[in-house]
Amino acid sequence: MEEFIQSRFNYWIYVILMMIGLWGMISKNNLIKKLIGMSIFQTAIILFYVSVAVKSETANIPILPHHGHDYSPKIAFAHAVSDDHENGGHDDHAGHQAHPVGPKIPDPDGYANPLPHVLMLTAIVVGVATLGLALAITQKIYREYGTLEEDQLLEKVRADDHG
């Protein structure tokens, strides 16, 4: 049971966060509160993606160690060429004679998955841009109608249509 909770706990958090956001977007009457709900929803998705990239036992951040030239690119390149038909794994290079410094091809299990990080970098920046635009539109609505409550807005829009 404990194992079960531990391995799934992160997903529960995202679902709960996402539902808080959805609740805010659906049920709140105020446009700013809807935007807050949208941001919470977005955060849940971003957390989900980043957690997919985690490899908790073995992995480091997706930046290669480059001090002391462990991964001198020329040597790495030579390895990549010669090992193209092999699987390029970690252990194949342990006994390599020509470069006694150590393995040169990064071990995929040793680094967190960079792809979700990239995708979420994109999503965060676009999220800021869309939030800014949404706030601008909200400001315009307030300037036109003097309120941000949805029901009052609907009344005023209908009155404008009929008048």
Partner: peptide, 13 residues
């Protein structure tokens, strides 16, 4: 993970 350093020489994947 395996090839960014080979293709681009950038340590930050």
């Amino acid at each position: 993970i395996k090839n960014t350093i080979v293709d681009t020489e950038v340590p930050n994947m």
